[in-house]
Nucleic acid binder design. Structure first.
Lengths: 232, 232
DNA sequence: CAGGGTTTCGAACAGTTGTTCGTCTAAAGA
DNA sequence: TCTTTAGACGAACAACTGTTCGAAACCCTG
């Protein structure tokens, strides 16, 4: 629990591009990556408990013992996927917040801060992109996760503190308690976008058929969150 | 989709008080209720898949075969808890919406509609009340639920249509699409209140120690949602 | 008391779970 | 060429899963 927290200080590593190369790892051990992507996909689609190691190895077309050989255990594999995707998401958010700060001399508008919070995960939700299952995995981890994941999410609090600190600066009229709650509510907009909700929204609003659907969705969310934040 | 929807028309059954007597059922079969409450509690705490029938029967201090005898199967028990709690929540929301309509001659302020949507589930979150595990169960069902539950939640769309219809009336300046999205966002405020989130909020905001914590929380949520809705 | 219907109980079922073991292959190093 | 070693493979393990069955115990009505 006293491990160094790489997400606390905003260093250059946070601003480094996402290491897509991590998927190919160190070059060898291709089956490890096959297991990784197959597990992430099945976990995101059907849940952690419902997916067995046999399901994963069958989907990845590798041997049954591969998971325990490359990751140690099923839970370790789960945690590996979770930590990598969480780090990627935190990095993307931190980068946008950093850019917003840099562009406005440390006093960005509330909208820019909320955009840095909301845009990265919602951009991942683009059905055309490769990240959709990753964000679905993360959303699922938020409710089905193990105790270890919950600890990591608690470390994530330190990551969120960047945003609460930024909002406290640009919203001096609000008490810290108010800022924390409204930040919590804003996160609710994002985390609530699970499968069933998307289906329901498709039913109600006639489907997300626009070309720029994701950008429009981000716009709507930021609009909503900004209004809640700027409330007197 | 063309099935008769009993939740669309607001009849007297919706306004009937919650049948707490349902917990005692028909008087006999006390073990059935023991199983019911033990299962709801364990499911809410640890998830659906992680809890076995042996865990439940051990917690309820009844025989292992009791679940299959009284409910048919583990999934049927799960569905029984889900349908009952969902019906109770829908009834409470419908009642508040009905009262808001009656008090304002069919043109209640946006705030009243949102209050009818948000207050019932959040009131259940009162740690002092008996309903806390029920709402935790329902929140968990929203992500871990089976296909049957998802179907029921789709019927729930019809229930939510009451609120979207009401909001369309009192927000004529908004397009239906806008109303649906903002209603979706408002629901996100509620559904995001799971365990880990509460813990995080407790850490950030110094804990929910106020006497009227739940009412204050409802106030904050309605404030936030109202601001998002009234946005130009 | 004797009756039948209801509920409880213990035991066992067949299936699935995550994990481990020994063996085999094949490529790299000496 | 021989040795080493990381990885793939099939088989099996013990533990746990939900469910079923028949007998025992119960309770209320005759």
């Amino acid at each position: 629990m006293t491990q160094p927290d790489p997400s606390l200080d905003l260093t250059d590593q946070d601003l480094a591009p996402d290491d897509e190369t991590a998927l190919t790892d160190d070059g060898c051990a291709a089956t490890r990556n096959l297991v990784f992507v197959a597990a992430e996909r099945l976990f995101a689609l059907h849940g952690f408990q419902k997916v067995s190691v046999r399901d994963i190895t069958a989907e990845a077309k590798v041997n049954l013992a591969s998971i325990n050989y490359h990751f140690g255990s099923k839970d370790a594999l789960l945690l590996d996927i979770f930590t990598r995707r969480t780090a990627e998401l935190n990095r993307a958010r931190a980068k946008m917040l950093h850019e917003a700060n840099a562009a406005h001399a440390g006093k960005p508008p509330v909208r820019a801060v909320l955009h840095a919070l909301i845009a990265p995960p919602v951009r991942w939700m683009d059905p055309k992109g490769e990240r959709l299952i990753s964000v679905q995995f993360l959303i699922r981890a938020r409710s089905e996760g193990t105790d270890q994941m919950r600890d990591i999410l608690r470390t994530d609090v330190s990551h969120l503190r960047r945003f609460s600190d930024a909002l406290l600066v640009v919203c001096p009229q609000l008490t810290p308690e108010e800022v924390y709650w409204r930040l919590h509510f804003s996160l609710g907009l994002v985390h609530n976008n699970r499968f069933a909700e998307f289906d329901r929204l498709n039913t109600l609003s006639g489907g997300l058929t626009r070309e720029d659907q994701v950008d429009v969705l981000i716009q709507r969310m930021v609009d909503f969150a900004e209004a809640g934040f700027l409330r007197a």
